[in-house]
Amino acid sequence: MIINNLKLIREKKKISQSELAALLEVSRQTINGIEKNKYNPSLQLALKIAYYLNTPLEDIFQ
């Protein structure tokens, strides 16, 4: 099972779900679904998340 630290990292960087969704060009519901482990992001989306949060991919999804 993948450990998902997206919410923790996003909140630590003081970025809202809506702000991150806008940067990634996805819906806020997509971010919410990823954070609640209801949706697994594509590799492309996971890499974009890591880029915009300036955090290694391995720290977000373990």
Rank of each mutant, 00 (worst) to 15 (best):
M1E: 10
M1Q: 10
M1W: 11
I2S: 10
I2H: 11
I2E: 07
I2G: 11
I2C: 15
I2P: 09
I2Q: 10
I3F: 12
I3L: 11
I3R: 14
I3H: 13
N4E: 02
N4Q: 04
N4T: 05
N5Q: 09
N5A: 06
N5E: 04
N5L: 05
L6F: 02
L6K: 00
L6G: 01
L6R: 00
L6C: 05
L6Y: 00
K7V: 05
K7G: 06
K7R: 12
K7E: 07
K7L: 06
L8Y: 12
L8G: 10
L8N: 14
L8I: 13
I9F: 10
I9H: 06
I9D: 01
I9G: 01
I9E: 05
I9K: 02
R10V: 05
R10L: 04
R10C: 06
R10G: 01
R10S: 02
R10A: 02
E11R: 09
E11Y: 06
E11T: 12
E11P: 02
E11Q: 13
K12G: 09
K12S: 14
K12L: 12
K13E: 07
K13Y: 11
K13C: 11
K13Q: 10
K13T: 06
K13R: 10
K13H: 09
K14V: 04
K14T: 05
K14F: 07
K14P: 02
K14D: 08
K14G: 15
K14E: 07
K14Y: 07
K14Q: 12
K14S: 08
I15L: 12
I15G: 02
I15F: 07
S16P: 05
S16E: 06
S16I: 03
S16R: 06
S16N: 06
S16M: 05
Q17H: 04
Q17V: 13
Q17M: 13
Q17R: 09
Q17N: 03
Q17G: 03
Q17C: 05
Q17F: 03
S18L: 10
S18N: 11
S18D: 14
S18T: 12
S18R: 14
S18M: 13
S18H: 10
S18I: 11
S18V: 10
E19H: 11
E19I: 06
L20N: 00
L20R: 00
A21K: 01
A21T: 01
A21W: 03
A21C: 04
A22E: 11
A22T: 13
L23Y: 11
L23I: 08
L23A: 15
L23H: 15
L24Y: 01
L24I: 08
L24Q: 00
L24C: 15
L24F: 00
L24D: 00
E25P: 04
E25N: 14
E25S: 11
E25I: 07
V26G: 02
V26R: 01
V26T: 06
V26E: 04
V26K: 01
V26I: 12
S27M: 04
S27N: 09
S27L: 04
S27Y: 03
S27F: 03
R28E: 15
R28F: 10
R28W: 15
R28L: 15
R28P: 15
R28T: 15
R28K: 15
Q29G: 11
Q29R: 14
Q29D: 15
Q29F: 10
Q29H: 14
Q29A: 15
T30E: 08
T30P: 02
T30Q: 07
T30Y: 15
T30R: 07
T30V: 15
I31W: 01
I31K: 04
I31N: 00
I31R: 01
I31P: 00
N32D: 15
N32Y: 09
N32P: 01
G33C: 15
G33T: 09
G33A: 15
G33S: 15
G33F: 13
G33L: 15
G33E: 15
I34E: 00
I34R: 00
I34S: 00
I34W: 08
I34G: 02
E35D: 03
E35P: 01
E35V: 02
E35L: 04
E35A: 01
E35R: 01
E35N: 00
K36N: 15
K36T: 15
K36Y: 07
K36R: 12
K36S: 15
K36V: 10
K36P: 02
N37K: 09
N37G: 15
N37W: 09
N37H: 14
N37R: 11
K38I: 14
K38A: 08
K38F: 14
Y39W: 11
Y39P: 01
Y39K: 10
Y39L: 14
N40G: 12
N40V: 14
N40M: 14
P41L: 08
P41W: 04
P41T: 05
P41I: 08
P41V: 08
P41Q: 02
S42N: 08
S42Y: 04
S42R: 06
L43H: 14
L43G: 08
L43V: 10
L43Q: 11
L43C: 15
Q44S: 12
Q44L: 08
Q44D: 14
Q44K: 11
L45F: 07
L45C: 06
L45T: 05
L45D: 03
L45V: 05
A46T: 06
A46P: 03
A46Y: 05
A46G: 06
A46M: 15
A46H: 02
A46Q: 15
A46E: 03
L47S: 08
L47F: 11
L47W: 08
L47A: 10
L47H: 09
L47E: 13
L47M: 13
K48Q: 08
K48D: 04
K48H: 05
K48T: 04
I49E: 00
I49R: 00
I49K: 00
I49N: 00
Y51H: 12
Y51K: 10
Y51M: 12
Y51F: 12
Y51T: 07
Y52G: 03
Y52N: 04
Y52I: 15
Y52K: 05
L53Q: 00
L53H: 02
L53D: 00
L53G: 00
N54E: 14
N54T: 08
N54R: 08
N54D: 14
T55G: 02
T55K: 03
T55L: 06
T55H: 07
T55S: 06
L57T: 05
L57I: 13
L57A: 06
L57Q: 03
L57V: 14
L57K: 04
E58W: 09
E58L: 10
E58K: 10
E58A: 09
E58G: 12
E58Y: 07
D59C: 14
D59H: 09
I60L: 10
I60H: 02
I60Q: 02
I60P: 02
F61Y: 05
F61P: 01
F61C: 04
F61I: 04
Q62T: 11
Q62A: 11
